[in-house]
Design a protein around this nucleic acid. Structure first.
Lengths: 213, 213
DNA sequence: TTTTGACTACACCAAAAGGTGTATATTAAT
DNA sequence: ATTAATATACACCTTTTGGTGTAGTCAAAA
């Protein structure tokens, strides 16, 4: 690697950005060329800047890390992305990897690991925080990597309305279909997901970001 | 203030601790004398160390920041505590203030604000992140400051179990009470929260961080 | 063209949840 | 000592949900 690694930080927590900045100040081959506190801002700044690596928080407002990663992987395939996150949410790990992230680092790891991840990814490697990867591998090999895929559009639509605290009858009225049909969809969705009741459906919807609010 | 301000950091995110350390390295009158990654460890270390200020994350494992703050305010009344948190959750702001915190700083504020907060609190003042305070004041004067406060411990406990996809009967068995009692609690909670059904309860629980998983 | 998947709808029935109100024992607060 | 809040329990009754299975229509894919 000739020259210094140009790093861009995208995180909605200003303090975290400052922290990383200070942290990397006395590392010779890394230079921070920019920052953004939300996804939209990040996309905007990429029109001007050409970082080698983006440290990307998943839980940003406006445009979340996963969608931002997808977009950037497509538009700027040479930019490498390392996901930074508070929690090792298996589901998000998978999504980030699919979206094209080259690294996945938990925020509760050491400074050393972060540096190592940056160096590794810069030279074309990949780096994943131990814990997150272990958990993910388990769940991937588990079987149903993505249960959402098994649901039909209509089922998803109805789950969304269930989350909005609507009854089968209310949903039926809204969609101009029979209450019985709504119930069928609801039950089929539950069977597919091996979920017992409404509570499970709501949790599933939230966990899998089926909701927009 | 003669001498340097002795600072202790309690946060379960190692990276964050490293960040703050690096951040404060070149500030003259502040010295970091220790760190802990959970509440229990913090309490242990206080037997040896005597910090002036503790930067305390609210969402720590084992012993959370609120309980740790209560304990420390009682045992070591000279130690000042500044709460550090990701979100400006009104409920937690109130709890931290009640517990005796002298400052409340969001993690997405600037380095400058953090420094200012530390200096202010060190000389006996208080400092609260603008956003959090505004929100809190609004909600305090509001009346229904936070719906969680209106719920009893038992109601919250039962909501948690509902979120775990358990039926009234299953909850009753687990808590060794009547199914009818569980239902009463469930219904009372719904009435208080003006929620129509299970879906609403689950959403509420997740929105208000009632769940630990 | 046949098959498959999705959406629709219903039967039949059981279990669970939700609405309103009453009541008692215990405990905490004033 | 009295009040207020909490946890407990039940009656009565309606609505909603959940479980299993069948079946017709339509459009897309093989």
């Amino acid at each position: 690697m000739q020259g210094r690694i140009k790093l861009f930080i995208a995180d909605d927590h200003q303090m975290f950005i400052d922290g990383i900045k200070a942290l990397l100040q006395n590392t010779e081959n890394i230079v921070i060329i920019g920052k953004a506190t939300n996804g939209k801002q990040l996309i905007e700044k990429l029109k001007e800047l050409s970082p080698d690596i983006i440290l990307m928080d998943i839980g940003m407002p406006d445009l979340n890390g996963i969608d931002a990663t997808k977009m950037i992987s497509k538009e700027y395939p040479t930019i490498k992305i390392i996901a930074l996150t508070m929690y090792d949410d298996n589901n998000r790990v998978v999504k980030m990897l699919k979206a094209g992230a080259k690294g996945y680092v938990l925020k509760n790891t050491t400074r050393e690991e972060l540096l190592h991840a940056i160096q590794t990814v810069a030279v074309g490697g990949v780096h994943y925080s131990a814990q997150a990867v272990v958990n993910t591998m388990q769940n991937i090999s588990d079987k149903n990597s993505n249960p959402v895929a098994n649901l039909t559009e209509r089922e998803i639509e109805i789950i969304r309305l269930i989350v909005k605290e609507m009854t089968n009858k209310e949903i039926a009225d809204k969609l101009f279909i029979s209450e019985l049909t709504v119930n069928t969809h609801r039950k089929n969705a539950m069977r597919k997901l091996e979920i017992k009741n409404t509570a499970g459906l709501v949790k599933f919807a939230i966990d899998h970001h089926l909701i927009d609010n």
